[in-house]
């Protein structure tokens, strides 16, 4: 159980796919015009990620090494199609607003990356939780960016008018001063347009860089800055596995130990257990990351006005 929690923690904070690994940037920028859209995209991606991780992990002894990437893509594309049809049937409004970015989940680096870096060399249950953790991390990140953009650009949060002339606080007489105060806000509509996405993400990554630098000064290690620029073909897998050192070693180990029974699973498990201690220290920093990040975002809001 602790292993499962560790995977979720890993995906959510320590190796957050958006803020730490900077993977899957295209949907991150495109659909985060509102918090709801961000959450919807994140959850759709999470479903695909969990299902594909589970399946790839189940089939990891069947898929030949040489054709594994095409095999992964077919599996992922099938699940994406399923999710797409389900959304179209049951949540048509979300389907409309996410549009072409739903089928494009196929080329999202996170999914192929996790398949290659984790699911292909680990048992089913940890892979499931890995998918869950990474998916949650992605969802949280997208919702956060979406919320920032929606608040700055439209004065709303999850569709409720928080800022601007006719905000929800006017409905409650005792909150009138607050409502008047917030009513002074003028929407910076650039934030829900395309350029705003670039600005918000630039400030978030800059904040991450700063946190990483100050952590390095204290001699601690957060997951390495990924120089990889995301979905660049075969680098994809290496990027996603960037902080997971020796993914290929593990695979080799597994292949060797296939002859000698199921030693591989135990071996990988113990390896992760061993590195968990180091991860603990690193993750303490990333726990306190949220505040500077917020500060940076506020600063950005001011500079834009």
């Amino acid at each position: 159980m602790s292993k499962a929690l560790e995977r979720i923690y890993n995906g959510l904070i320590k190796e957050n796919p958006t803020f730490v690994l900077t993977l899957g940037m295209c949907p991150t920028l495109a659909v985060t015009t509102s918090a709801i859209n961000g959450a919807g995209m994140g959850l759709s991606t999470m479903v695909v990620l969990v299902l594909s991780n589970v399946f790839i992990s189940m089939l990891r002894r069947v898929i030949p090494d040489k054709v594994r990437i095409p095999a992964f893509i077919v599996i992922i594309a099938s699940f994406v199609t399923i999710v797409q049809l389900l959304l179209q049937g049951y949540v048509p409004s979300l389907y409309e607003s996410l549009g072409i970015y739903i089928p494009l989940i196929v080329v999202n680096c996170i999914i192929l990356g996790r398949a290659e870096a984790y699911a292909y060399s680990n048992p089913v249950i940890p892979s499931l939780f890995d998918g869950l953790g990474m998916g949650l991390g992605f969802t949280v990140a997208l919702t956060l960016i979406g919320a920032c953009r929606e608040l700055l650009g439209a004065g709303q949060l999850f569709g409720f008018q928080i800022l601007g002339a006719d905000n929800v606080f006017y409905q409650n007489a005792s909150l009138r001063p607050l409502a008047m105060f917030l009513g002074e806000y003028t929407n910076i509509s650039i934030f829900i347009m395309a350029p705003g996405a670039f600005f918000v993400l630039a400030f978030i990554i800059a904040a991450m860089n700063r946190i990483r630098r100050s952590a390095a000064k204290k001699g601690k290690q957060i997951a390495p800055a990924s120089d990889c620029t995301g979905c660049m073909g075969k680098n994809c897998a290496e990027c996603a596995g960037g902080s997971k050192e020796g993914a290929s070693d593990q695979k080799q180990e597994e292949r060797i130990s296939k002859d000698s029974g199921s030693a591989a699973d135990e071996e990988t498990a113990s390896k992760d257990g061993g590195s968990a201690a180091d991860e603990e220290t690193a993750s303490k920093d990333s726990g306190s990351d949220a505040k500077p990040e917020e500060a940076a975002k506020n600063g950005e809001g001011e500079s834009a006005t």
Partner: peptide, 23 residues
């Protein structure tokens, strides 16, 4: 460029300004 903004962030800000121009 401020140290935190070197690399990816400043490129994204450049891209954002280009996006405004393309609007």
């Amino acid at each position: 460029v401020p140290e935190s903004f070197r690399g990816m962030p400043i490129t994204m800000i450049t891209a954002g300004l280009m996006a405004i121009a393309f609007c």
